[in-house]
Design a protein around this nucleic acid. Structure first.
Length: 461
RNA sequence: UCCGGUGUAGCUCAGCAGGUAGAGCAGGUGGCUGUUAACCACCGGGUCGGGGGUUCGAGUCCCUCCGCCGGAGCCA
């Protein structure tokens, strides 16, 4: 007998099958049978099971099946007499694998996303989180698929790093030292030479520097893995642990980098839109704005590209009053970015050429000596979804910028060596995977697009 | 971390001139029905986020801590 996923039952009408899943609701008919809605996670839709009183355990077990119970059902797929589903399963045997009593937190009613976050171990059993999980998975595969088809090598960069500054924010310390008895140097500071790695180490905030070294050997590489930022960020767009996609390409300049970012985003969005119509449709119906139209528009229209200098001019000419004044040399604020992408252009915007003062040391300096070949891809609602740059491949300029940034170049000898031996122009970017999922699904809080979110005060489960 | 809001039954919420708490859903019982967030009746269910204070009396006022939500900063 076939063990079926509920989503494929429709093509087995008339056949005897086995399905296994969790009961979403039970409705009893005094006509002598019960309806069980069983969901096995294979799709958004549940399968309606008809359990007749002639079943041996009808009184003893089936009538006591609560929301959340796990069952195995053997039965025949038949056309439904009801209106809301085409087929249903006429049960010949219902086995309760795991019961669920009245304390089961999920009920047949709407729950707030905040409440569901507090029961992250059970929230995957809801329509919304089941859909998000399937879309997330599909999107991850779409990303790998995109890079594979475009000749990229999938690279695993280290999670533990000794770089004390990768230019991307506060880091989580990794140590096996006993915090109660920290070894001290004669000067009184913590003696990390006695730590596991004989030096201070942290969780990575980016795999970029390592990825660069492989790009300068294999041509096109990308990383896709967990990333950690110890920033005390309390927003709907930040996590302490998130997944980042970082392609790095030798012989790419900034324009090629931007073109890749645009094609990549469009391809991945199109893939989940056509590949997950049911889940995407459900999530879109829950969002407070037209997700499908927005995505379709983005897939079809070219991204706007403009320089930081032009962006500043547009913002100044807009006549719009901003909380933070716009001035060349100052970073663009979120309100400025959102104005550009949501109101001025109404589509994704790629801003390039930021002043070097507030950009990372590894970004290539432009001929004007004032700006760098950086780019931010801004999308409506989310803001910055991608940050990238052409990298500084010229040894002397790179060293100079590292010194300006106050970095100890001795610790980056391995990185600098790539510029000393066979250096090449190259570029890359970082994409926040969860932000992309947010953007695609319309989910408002980034904590709801990752199974077990880590953020300040929260590392449960 | 900053600004604003908020925290009441298992869940979603109401209560507010300070006078010892209420609805819907969930659960139990009964009725009814190829039902579909089923429906009808009845029943059980609360240290009103934690701590402190003002008051004869605090869910309601004040202080403080914590969580949550929105916005900001940092960024992906």
């Amino acid at each position: 007998m076939n063990l079926l996923s509920a989503s494929s039952a429709a093509s087995f009408v008339g056949q005897q099958v086995l399905i296994q899943g969790w009961v979403r609701t039970r409705r009893d008919s005094k006509g002598g049978f019960s309806f069980l809605e069983v969901n096995d996670g294979s799709a958004l839709a549940s399968l309606q099971v008809i359990a007749d009183q002639k079943l041996a355990n009808y009184e003893s077990e089936i009538l006591k099946i609560g929301v959340g119970a796990c069952v195995t059902v053997r039965g025949t797929v038949v056309e439904s007499k009801g209106q809301k589903q085409a087929i249903e399963l006429s049960a010949e045997e219902v086995t309760v694998l795991g019961s669920a009593d009245a304390t089961y937190p999920l009920q047949k009613k709407g729950h707030s996303l905040e409440f569901l976050r507090s029961i992250a171990h059970l929230r995957a059993r809801t329509n919304t989180f089941g859909a998000v999980a399937r879309v997330r998975s599909a999107m991850a595969f779409a990303i790998h698929d995109y890079f594979r088809k475009n000749g990229f090598v999938y690279l695993h960069t280290p999670i533990i790093t000794a770089s004390d500054c990768e230019g991307a924010g506060a880091m989580f310390r990794v140590s096996t030292l006993d915090p109660e008895k920290l070894p001290r140097t004669p000067q009184g500071s913590v003696d990390f030479s006695q730590d596991f790695f004989s030096r201070a180490t942290s969780l990575t905030v980016s795999g970029q520097l390592e990825a660069e070294t492989y790009a300068l050997a294999l041509g096109k590489v990308y990383t896709f893995g967990p990333t950690f930022r110890a920033e005390n960020s309390n927003t709907s767009r930040h996590l302490a642990e998130f997944w980042m996609v970082e392609p790095e390409m030798a012989f790419f300049d900034l324009d090629m980098n931007a073109a890749l970012a645009e094609d990549f985003l469009k391809t991945v969005l199109r893939t989940v839109l056509v590949g997950c119509p049911e889940d995407m449709g459900f999530l879109a119906s829950r969002a407070d704005y037209p997700v499908h139209e927005t995505l379709q528009h983005i897939i079809e229209s070219p991204f706007e590209r403009l320089s930081y200098t032009d962006a500043v001019a547009i913002l100044q000419k807009s006549g719009k009053k901003f909380d933070y004044p716009v001035a060349w040399g100052q970073p663009l604020q979120t309100e400025h970015e959102r104005f550009l992408t949501e109101q001025e252009f109404k589509r994704p915007v790629i801003v390039t050429g930021y002043p070097k003062e507030f950009t990372a040391f590894y970004m290539r300096l432009n001929e004007d000596g004032k700006t760098v070949r950086a780019m931010d891809v801004l999308v409506p609602r989310i803001g910055e979804i991608i940050g990238g740059s052409q990298r500084e491949e010229r040894y002397d300029r790179l060293v100079a910028r590292m010194q300006e940034a106050g970095l100890n170049t001795a610790e980056y000898e391995w990185y600098l060596a790539t510029r000393r031996y066979g250096s090449a122009p190259h570029a890359g970017f970082g994409l926040g995977f969860e932000r992309l999922i947010q953007f695609a699904t319309g989910m408002e809080n980034i904590r709801d697009v990752i199974p077990f979110p880590r953020y300040p005060q929260h590392a449960e489960f």
